[in-house]
Simulated scan of single mutants.
Amino acid sequence: MVFKSGHAADNLAAEVGRLRASRVMVIAAECESETAKKVSTGFDVALHYSDVSPHVPIAKAKAARAIASEYDIDLLVCIGGGSTTGLAKAIAMTTAIVAVPTTYAGSEGTNVWGLTANSRKLTGVDNRVLPVTVIYDAELTLSLPVQLSVASGLNALAHCVDSMWAPRADPINQAFASEGIRALASGLQAVVSDPAGIGGRERALYGAYLSAVAFASAGSGMHHKICHVLGGAYGMPHAQTHATVLPHVLAFNAQHAPEAEIRIAAAFGADSAVEGLDRLCSALGAPSALKEYGFDEAAIPEAARLILPAIPESNPHVVTIDDLERLLRAVWSGRPVEG
């Protein structure tokens, strides 16, 4: 990991040289094209690629793999958020990745891949998709609007919270998650109060990296299983969905996981985990209702049926179909969080 604001181009050129890459494919969405060109000026680029979509539809993954093979690519450089990193991971079974994040998604720090096929999000773990280098530069996040910064940062914070009771949770990844919560809470509030400031964005990037390490180690918990279904089956926006679902899952689980609840509350500096997250979301003006993003209330029973089989046995509290329907109705409406 390389972490230095204002030096992404120099650091990226140095990594391309260190890896002795001669056929580099730079992946960046159209909205990041100028940033990508600026950051990749220090080396020869064989191919600029911009056909990026949320949740990595499998057809787009296959097309990107084919063109990478056609150009004999020996290094992928992904510049952008989680969708861009996700596409690089879909190609990376035989090609190394250097990731340059411009959001707080955290995908660059995990060996988890995700693809969407037939309205279902498929995920897996493979060390070949883990970037060999991650280049963090907070200046590259300055163009990320405040509300997208908030949603992206809360997505990272959801990695931390889920890591407290995921299938492989242990005191080490819980420690990473606790520090990630502290850094993200502080950093995101600074971003909201001073969007042009670098300090808050650096803390948010630091927290996002810790969240990714914790998540990769602990595995995927109840929160992520819900969000994978909502994203894959109903096309919900990734970051906003995570931000909206998180308070409800925390309220559902916290009372049944007292040790984790104490850790989360302490990280927020609050009397309880739910209070701490609620206070943060209020301060940030966080997304609160999925109906605002096009989720149809009539889809809730089907969504609950799709989610239930994916809930890990490690979840602190047994989950029923009725629990999921109540939770999803609260997520849809944005009504106050209930235990």
Rank of each mutant, 00 (worst) to 15 (best):
P312I: 11
V16D: 12
E108Q: 04
R168Y: 06
G80E: 00
E108R: 03
L76P: 02
I198F: 08
A92E: 03
A298N: 01
I262C: 07
K291Q: 15
A310I: 03
S69Q: 14
C78F: 03
T85D: 00
V245S: 00
P309L: 11
M1I: 09
G124I: 05
F268S: 09
Q174A: 11
G80C: 02
A21Q: 15
V56Q: 14
G276N: 13
L19R: 15
I300M: 00
R18N: 14
R182A: 10
S22M: 14
R203K: 11
G197S: 15
F215D: 02
V45W: 13
L47A: 14
P237S: 04
G109A: 12
K4W: 05
H317G: 07
A183E: 10
V192I: 09
A216R: 01
D44M: 12
A59S: 13
I58K: 12
A289H: 05
I67L: 13
D296P: 01
N155G: 02
L277W: 05
A59V: 12
T320R: 09
G187T: 04
L246M: 11
A270C: 14
A66D: 12
L130P: 05
H224Y: 07
V26L: 15
G106C: 02
V125P: 00
I135H: 01
W332F: 10
V24W: 14
L115W: 11
A14H: 13
G276Q: 14
R326S: 08
A14S: 13
A273V: 07
D194P: 00
S186H: 07
I264F: 07
A299R: 01
A63V: 11
L327A: 07
A59Y: 10
T41G: 14
T241K: 02
A64V: 10
L188E: 01
S40Q: 13
A156L: 06
G221V: 10
P301I: 05
G269Y: 15
N118C: 03
V150P: 01
A267F: 09
T320N: 09
A254Y: 02
D296W: 02
V245H: 01
L324E: 07
F3G: 06
H224M: 11
L19E: 15
E34M: 15
R329I: 06
P258D: 04
V192G: 06
E70S: 12
I226E: 00
L87F: 11
K225I: 05
F268H: 12
R168H: 11
G153Q: 06
S282M: 12
A88L: 13
E70M: 10
V56H: 04
M93T: 11
M164S: 07
A266L: 09
A270N: 10
W332E: 03
R120N: 02
L75M: 13
Y136F: 08
G200D: 02
A68H: 14
G285M: 12
H228G: 04
F3N: 10
S53K: 13
A59G: 12
V229L: 02
C227H: 00
E297G: 01
K4L: 13
R329F: 11
Y104W: 05
A177E: 09
N11P: 03
S107N: 05
K291P: 00
G81E: 00
S211K: 04
A183D: 06
V52F: 07
V98C: 02
L142S: 01
G294M: 01
